[in-house]
Amino acid sequence: MFRARPVAVAAALASLALAATACGTGGGQQEDGGPWKPDRPIELIAPAATGGGWDTLARTSGRVLEEGGLVDEPVQVVNKPGGGGSIGWAYVAQTPDTPTRLFVTSPPISLVPLMGGSTYDHEDFTPIARLATEYMVYLVPKDSPIESWGDMVDRLEEDPRQVSIAGGSSPGSMDHVALAGAVEAAGIDPTAINYVPFDGGGEAMTQAVGGHVDAVVTGASEAAGLVESGDLRPLAVSGAERASTLPDTPTLQEEGVDFTYDIWRGVMGPPDMTDEQVAYYEDLFTDMTEEESWKKQTKALGWTDSYMGSEEFGGFLDQSSTDSAEILMKIGLIEDEEGR
């Protein structure tokens, strides 16, 4: 009895694992002319382990698509963790003939290749839709002498050593770029700032609450709890508009700094998808963002709707990639727009 059980469980798990990876070679092309439809389960790749931002996005999308009855085929979320996303990207890039294999994505698709962490960048994939966005927020501990964004800029101008600023990821990643871009736009040398990378936004905020660093930059929804409790005081958000989760916090533009930074989230597919395939998915994800359950979910997660179709999304990706490259060059992390 005891011996049989673990074997059965192991076998079940093994076959699950096989099922998760084996499906999806070959295409979903239809020869009979009509509009393209997937003829097999749609694979939604999260290029990260379970539990992170990409995983949440993939699972939320998958659930809304299935529960809303928007798809005839099931949607399977597949985690392809590793390499900061590059393992998952390589996986999708190498199967151009599998239009049922999509992946969820966000700014690292530009930043990681620029920093030399991936041979594939956004141009190697077919943009499908941008779905939602969120902003960065710049915060200080509640008893900090820094009163406002302008005040922090003054202090940085006087001596950048005065202000250590924590972020949740390594140099050249979202938190650092959002910080460097903002201070650069405010007229300060971004190479001089004292950016201290931590392992995730939660850890970075903990260090700020404990007073070990002077300020912190992180995602707006992540910080909402500690702002509400009064442990952290927000100085500014990086959006073009104020964040719904932090309605009293001014934008950088209101503070006189011409800079915005979006933590956008979207869906991309393998290279060389046909127009019919792209059109099918565009419609599908438009319908998804109109579902009540999607709206409820994204609100809970602190995301704002910011839908873009394939073409517009592609243009946006080109632009944001160029912007990021420019900031990374100014920080001195890369030498030219090709990255390192």
Binding site: D55, G225, S229, D231, L301
Partner: peptide, 14 residues
């Protein structure tokens, strides 16, 4: 924590 967020609960000081 991620699961709680999806369920609409923000764990934290409050």
């Amino acid at each position: 924590l991620g699961a709680l967020l999806v369920l609409g609960v923000t764990p934290g000081p409050m």
